[in-house]
C-alpha cells in the first residue's frame, strides 16, 4: 500500500482530531503501515516533546519503550496538556512518577500461565467484541498483555484485571481535567496487529482494539 503521507507526520492531516504518538526511535513505526492509523495518528519524536506545540493535538499516545526520565522532566507539560481537557493513553510499565495519580509498576508473582489470565471488570467500547482469550494469549503464548499493573489512584474506572483483581487497564477522569487511559500492555495500539509483523499471523479479535481505541479517543475529544 502507498502511504498517503509521510509516516513522520510532517504534512498536515485531514482530520481535526489529531493524535500524537511518541516515537521512541526504533526505526519506522510499524503501526503506520495501516491506513486507518496513519490517517489519524502522527508520530512525534519523544525528544521533540519539550519544544513541540501540543495544542493542535487532542490526544497523546505513549508506549512502553519511552524514556521516562524525559517524561519526568516534562511532567508539568503533561499535566497542563491533560488539564486542557485532552486525552493521554499510556501503555507500558511506569518506572518514574510523571503520570498524574499513577504509581510505579508492581510486577505479579507468576507461578503458572494461568496467572496471566485477563478478565473484563466492565464493558468498555475499546474492548467490545474482543475475547479475553485473545488478550491472555498471543499465538498461544500467555503474558504479552500484562505481567503486573500500574497502581491507579482511588475512584478510577477499572476495565481489565489479572486473576488477583490487579487493574491492568483503567481510565482516570479524576486526577486531571482530562482523561488518562492506562494499560500495562507494552503497546495497546499495536497489540492484536500481529499482521504488522507477519503475514501468516492468525486472526484474533484483539485486532479490534486499534480501531476501537482511535474511535474512543475521537468520541472523548469531540
Amino acid at each position: 500500500m502507498k502511504p498517503t503521507r509521510s509516516p513522520s507526520g510532517s504534512s498536515s492531516p485531514s482530520k481535526s482530531a489529531r493524535i500524537a504518538m511518541l516515537d521512541t526511535g526504533l526505526g519506522t513505526m510499524p503501526h503506520m503501515k495501516y491506513d486507518f492509523i496513519r490517517e489519524r495518528v502522527e508520530s512525534l519524536d519523544m525528544y521533540e516533546l519539550p519544544e513541540a506545540e501540543l495544542s493542535p493535538y487532542v490526544a497523546l499516545m505513549i508506549t512502553g519503550n519511552v524514556d521516562q526520565e524525559l517524561l519526568y522532566r516534562e511532567r508539568k507539560r503533561i499535566q497542563d496538556f491533560l488539564d486542557s481537557g485532552k486525552v493521554l493513553v499510556f501503555s507500558g510499565h511506569l518506572s518514574r512518577e510523571w503520570l498524574p495519580g499513577a504509581g510505579t509498576f508492581v510486577p505479579k508473582e507468576i507461578r503458572s500461565f494461568q496467572d496471566y489470565e485477563i478478565h473484563k471488570a466492565k464493558d468498555h467500547p475499546i474492548f467490545e467484541g474482543v475475547e479475553t482469550k485473545d488478550l491472555t494469549f498471543r499465538r498461544g503464548v500467555a503474558g504479552f498483555f500484562a505481567r503486573g499493573h500500574n497502581p491507579p489512584p482511588e475512584g478510577v474506572e477499572v476495565i481489565l484485571t489479572l486473576p488477583g483483581g490487579e487493574p491492568v487497564v483503567y481510565v482516570d477522569r479524576r486526577s486531571t481535567r482530562g482523561v488518562i487511559f492506562v494499560s500495562a500492555c507494552y503497546d495497546l495500539l499495536g497489540f492484536g496487529l500481529d499482521r504488522l509483523y507477519s503475514d501468516d499471523a492468525p486472526e484474533t479479535t484483539a485486532s479490534l482494539i486499534a480501531p476501537q481505541l482511535l474511535a474512543w479517543i475521537e468520541k472523548e475529544t469531540s
Partner: peptide, 9 residues
C-alpha cells in the same frame, strides 16, 4: 541507560 522501564529494571 535509555530511560525506559525495561532498562530501568
Amino acid at each position: 541507560y535509555g530511560g525506559s522501564a525495561p532498562h530501568h529494571r
